Amino acid sequence: MEMKIISRSGRVPAYETKGAAGFDIAAYLEEPVTLEPGMRMLVPTGLFFEVPEGYEAQVRARSGLAVKYGIGLVNGIGTVDADYRGEVKVPLINWGSEPFVIRNGERIAQVVINRIEQVELVSAEELSETERGAGGFGHTGV
């Protein structure tokens, strides 16, 4: 399967190893920007994806940035839909205690491609019973 990518920087992302689930994407900036502790920023990548129909591109945090500096995604995981053609931008947040400088070309997130399906949404008056029922967060104990 192919996925078309336009890259303003001329660098097309690639899987780093044969077994990699995702590929890294980098910041596309004219000058470095500083993400202060607690600050959120939508960081451009200069990338435009044509995700194949029936798939999504999940934008995820890079574990190294998260562990070393506290840098994550504001929304946890972002989705690039198959019909979106705009620039992929990454909503970063600095959960850490120190300012974090983002430079052009720095890898800031990773992308994993997943198959998706749409379901038919049907209005209902009640739902079927299950053993769990309405048990929510923490209902099974610690």
Rank of each mutant, 00 (worst) to 15 (best):
A57Y: 08
R115M: 10
L29R: 01
Q110K: 08
V111E: 09
P44G: 09
L42R: 10
L65D: 02
Q58C: 09
L92I: 04
K4L: 14
G72L: 06
V90F: 03
V74G: 01
W95L: 15
R132P: 07
I93H: 00
Y69R: 12
K4N: 07
E16D: 15
V88Q: 05
I6C: 10
S123Q: 15
V80K: 01
V88L: 15
N104I: 08
E125D: 11
I25S: 03
N94L: 00
M41L: 09
H139D: 15
G64Y: 03
D81Q: 12
E56G: 07
S97I: 14
I113A: 00
V88W: 08
S97E: 15
G46Y: 02
G10E: 01
E129G: 02
A61P: 11
V51F: 10
E2K: 15
V74Y: 08
G136S: 06
L65Q: 08
T140I: 13
Y28C: 14
G54C: 04
R60W: 04
E87Q: 14
S97A: 14
L35P: 02
Q118P: 05
I102P: 02
Q58M: 06
E53A: 10
M3L: 14
E106K: 09
E16S: 14
R132L: 03
V67K: 12
T130R: 10
E36W: 05
V33A: 05
R62N: 02
R8P: 05
M39W: 12
P99D: 00
G86C: 06
R60H: 07
S9G: 11
S123W: 11
G78V: 06
E131Q: 08
G141L: 08
I71P: 08
I93E: 00
E106F: 09
I116P: 10
V122T: 12
P32K: 05
L47P: 03
N114I: 11
L121W: 04
E120Y: 02
L121G: 10
N75S: 02
T130E: 03
M1N: 15
T79K: 09
G133V: 09
Y28T: 13
M3S: 05
A82T: 03
T17I: 07
A26E: 15
K89L: 06
A134R: 12
G54N: 08
V90R: 03
M39Q: 12
R103W: 05
A109P: 09
G19E: 15
V90L: 07
E16M: 12
V67W: 15
P44F: 08
A109N: 08
L73W: 02
E125K: 00
T17M: 05
G10K: 04
P91Q: 04
A26L: 07
R107N: 05
A109G: 03
E98T: 10
E16T: 15
F100I: 01
Y69E: 12
E2W: 14
S9N: 12
E36K: 13
S97M: 13
Y28W: 13
V101P: 06
G54V: 09
V112T: 11
G64Q: 14
G136V: 06
V119A: 14
V12L: 15
P91I: 01
L65A: 00
M39Y: 13
G22Y: 00
S128N: 11
A134M: 13
L29D: 10
L121D: 07
A57C: 03
E125L: 01
L35F: 06
E30R: 15
I6S: 12
I93Q: 01
R103C: 06
S9P: 11
T45R: 09
G70R: 04
P91D: 04
P44E: 02
R85E: 13
